[in-house]
Write a protein that binds this DNA or RNA. Structure first.
Lengths: 331, 331
DNA sequence: ACGGTTAGTGCAACCGATCTCGGCAATCGA
DNA sequence: TCGATTGCCGAGATCGGTTGCACTAACCGT
């Protein structure tokens, strides 16, 4: 039962190929009874249109690439999850592309998406995004990035308000009585990571406390190093804000290895609001990013841009998520 | 600079389309100097072949779908990561398909992969796989599943030896002095989950200890319920084996919420060997599955089957990974 | 009743490749 | 020397749709 093509459907329905085509892709252009007849016949034959052939002829497909550096990172995984959903609610087919942070791969995916006539693409970068690259691939006007970009506002973006998130974290910790609050930046490289750090630096200086960056490396071991650093201090902070949930996990784990308990000995906050955080030990207090919204909005922005060329930059509000990893300062 | 098609390259090189085509896809069929000349011209024009057009004509593409129930689950994320790598080392393009456990979606992906002429597909199921469905889509002979299947050995599979894994876990715990070892099955539904459970039941009965299943639900809250159950027992086990790492996380987290400490009060082991486990608090002792190998082998099996119709069932050896969540039994 | 719309459909070229044939040398065996 | 093979390439049909154009019939106002 090799699947039938448009011609056999046409013959079975007693109409021309083009009418079948229209029945499917331009319903208003065909008399409704004809269309229903065709659809019924097609249904009976188990016919569906070939997306390949369509894309080839139309020079536009429904493949939407989502480019992420590492799907193993739960943040990107959650993003991917909500975006697949959002995508196929709108009739797109999300293609997950994992770069491992390799710029060459990123470019490879760009050329691939061009070749596949993707209508647009979404990129969640691991480094500060270079809009030049996007442009070079004639894709500059069809891509939205999930980060802030600098110096070029011609590409749509979605982010959460990093500064606001840090404010939330700081307020929470201070209301608990903390005055000495450290920061672990961990993996950085993106603008948002930078923004979080900057906000911490600035805002914690405003408060009574002095900024205290425990680590600012950009590798996965930053958490462990931060913990080591913490242990060596003669006057360690009573609370720590981690740049993201994964780093918070690592910090707590490394601290625990040395017998430091959270939140009894030190409070630790994350930033992301991963579902995983609820199952951490202890459950992680964090600043939640509305990941699902980000995904939906990213696609909407892309569509809007495709439609009328408008490029928007939306920044979302983060939200405090208090769980069990924060408490009053140790005595 | 609309990308050039095969005809402009042909004209520029002074040859016919078909020669250009051969220069790319069947190098031995064209004189080497002609081919090099063509390739050079193509290079200069920035020409690459359209995968769409190729797939349409050849009726076979390089799109390899990986069907997983939930990319948010780190196990599948790690699988996806290693498989994208493995796939494009071999010239395939991995398409990640997330079903959220919805069988309708799974079927949708199957029809999509047929329409795209995928040469084969990989499925990592969330429920016992029904080979009937695979067959119905004329895909029965082009899919490999990452699980065991029952009653039908006509589809290639990759799994790890569940029983062996449980042996490893039990041995480890017993060597630490534990005699009362509980089990939390958590999310199940797949054959491997079933196998793990069965192995535990059987093997723990063999030992001196009596089997003790703390929970066998199949939802994400099983961990929490198991912890509750644990707390209510008058004679709780001194060690717990969780069906997989995620459940172990949840159990430890829930236990911690009630002041039970791991491994001081109770040892907990996982099963998976997720990278995340190393950053848990405490770092999780677990049975490692060679996820990367599974990915590679899955693709190899698929290729082998496509080539000569052979269907293999490979089962891999798990490995004990001792970290910090296990210790001697409490007094 | 008549020129002008408009809706509905057929025709055929086209998207960018692949592949079977068949032609034309050059080479081979005897 | 001659027919047969072989290597290399071009012609043209084809994959499964889309779309601009032409055509027909029904419908409009006057």
């Amino acid at each position: 039962m090799a699947d039938p093509n448009i011609d056999v459907v046409a013959k079975a329905a007693g109409v021309h190929r083009s009418t079948v085509s229209r029945a499917f892709s331009r319903p208003e252009a065909v008399k409704s009874e004809t269309r229903e007849h065709i659809l019924r016949i097609a249904e009976g034959l188990g016919y569906t249109m070939s997306p390949l052939a369509q894309a080839l002829r139309r020079k536009t497909s429904t493949f939407v690439p989502l480019i992420v550096p590492d799907i193993t990172n739960p943040f990107f995984a959650e993003l991917a999850k909500t975006m697949t959903q959002a995508a196929d609610e709108r009739g797109y087919q999300l293609l997950l592309c994992v770069t491992n942070g390799d710029p060459a791969k990123t470019e490879g995916y760009f050329t691939a998406m061009q070749a596949m006539y993707a209508p647009f693409g979404i990129v969640a970068p691991s480094t500060k995004v270079d809009t030049g690259v996007l442009k070079r691939f004639d894709f500059g006007h069809r891509v939205v990035v999930i980060d802030r970009v600098e110096g070029d506002s011609s590409v749509p973006t979605v982010t959460v308000d990093s500064r606001r998130g840090i404010v939330l974290a700081l307020e929470h910790l201070r209301s608990l009585g903390h005055t000495s609050i450290g920061y672990v930046s961990g993996i950085s490289g993106t603008h948002t990571a930078q923004d979080r750090m900057d906000a911490y630096l600035e805002l914690s200086a405003e408060g009574s406390s002095t900024p205290l960056v425990l680590d600012s490396g950009s590798d996965p071991d930053a958490g462990a190093r931060a913990a080591k650093h913490f242990l060596e201090m003669e006057n360690p902070p009573t609370a720590i804000i981690a740049a993201n949930d994964m780093v918070a996990f690592a910090v707590i784990s490394a601290l625990g290895q040395s017998g430091i308990r959270v939140p009894e000995d030190v409070s630790v906050m994350g930033f992301d609001g991963l579902a995983l955080g609820a199952r951490f030990n202890p459950a992680l207090t964090t600043v939640r990013q509305p990941i699902a919204d980000m995904g939906n909005i990213a696609i909407e922005l892309a569509e809007k841009q495709n439609l009328n060329g408008s490029v928007d930059h939306v920044v979302l509000e983060p939200e405090l998520l208090v769980r069990a990893s924060t408490a009053g300062p140790r005595k």
